[in-house]
């Protein structure tokens, strides 16, 4: 199998790349910083006999997407899985204080991510199908005080991914929307871990299984499915009072 991961050198992307490497996948690492990607490639080559290559791809620069897609499928190469873990993160307080940063986050997490998915959709369908697995977030499930803007970008993304799956699964394009709860990575470092915080390795194994099964919606760790079920049904007067 061949799996490409955007955001492969850090956090969830790194953990997932390692899980797939140990399964023997050929890997394509996508990210902004090629030097960092090369260091991660070295790590993965010790862990796997599969081929590991790197391609520069910046979620802030959608003009580069056509070249990325072309490189991924160059010479008629087949790609089984494209996983997008990359995104910007900011707390509500940080983003309210910095509208430019907020715009950059909304653009990258929503518009640019969707554009990349759209281009990948065409290429994956052209080769007869494949899996597109995108990291959204539980933050998109309900408008909550600490992650309103970030959550808005993820709510839009989840919505798009659901529709994509409904429309194209029959044609062979499997879409997986991953909604991680709190996972202890560099992105969340400095935040106080809530109950049910997940370890990246365990979440990566769940995501890897979802790639095998084609699970359209994955909460990870699984308990967040039930946590979010409750939160989605909390009345507004409660949501206004709690800080969560």
């Amino acid at each position: 199998m061949k799996t490409a991961i955007l955001g492969a050198s850090k956090g969830m992307g790194r953990a997932l790349a390692r899980v797939r490497a140990e399964r023997g996948d050929d890997l394509v690492l996508l990210g902004r910083d090629v030097e960092e990607l090369e260091r991660s490639a070295a790590d993965l080559r010790v862990r796997s006999r599969g081929a590991v290559t790197v391609i520069a791809c910046d979620l802030d620069a959608p003009d580069g997407f056509p070249a990325v897609i072309e490189a991924l499928f160059a010479g008629g190469a087949r790609l089984d899985n494209l996983v997008i873990t990359a995104a910007h993160f900011g707390t509500q307080d940080e983003l309210e204080a910095d509208p430019v940063r907020a715009r950059r986050l909304l653009t990258a997490n929503l518009a640019n991510t969707i554009e990349l998915c759209e281009r990948a959709r065409v290429a994956l369908l052209a080769q007869g199908g494949g899996t597109l697995c995108v990291f959204s977030s539980v933050a998109g499930d309900r408008g909550r005080k600490p992650v309103g803007l970030y959550g808005a970008s993820k709510a839009g993304l989840s919505h798009y991914l659901e529709a994509l799956d409904h429309k194209w699964r029959a044609a062979g394009l499997i879409t997986i929307c991953v909604k991680p709860g709190f996972v202890k990575t560099g992105m969340t470092a400095g935040l106080k871990p809530p109950p049910f915080a997940g370890e990246p390795d365990a979440v990566a194994r769940q995501v890897s299984d979802a790639l095998e099964r084609g699970t359209p919606l994955l909460y990870a760790p699984s308990i967040w499915r039930w946590v979010m079920l409750v939160i989605r049904h909390l009345p507004r007067f409660v949501m206004r009072r709690i800080s969560f």
């Binding site: 790194r14 260091r39 991660s40 070295a42 790590d43 010790v46 862990r47 990575t185 560099g186 470092a189």
Partner: peptide
């Protein structure tokens, strides 16, 4: 602990 890569072996 997040900087946990093998860079060469």
């Amino acid at each position: 602990t997040l900087a946990d890569r093998i860079l060469a072996f």
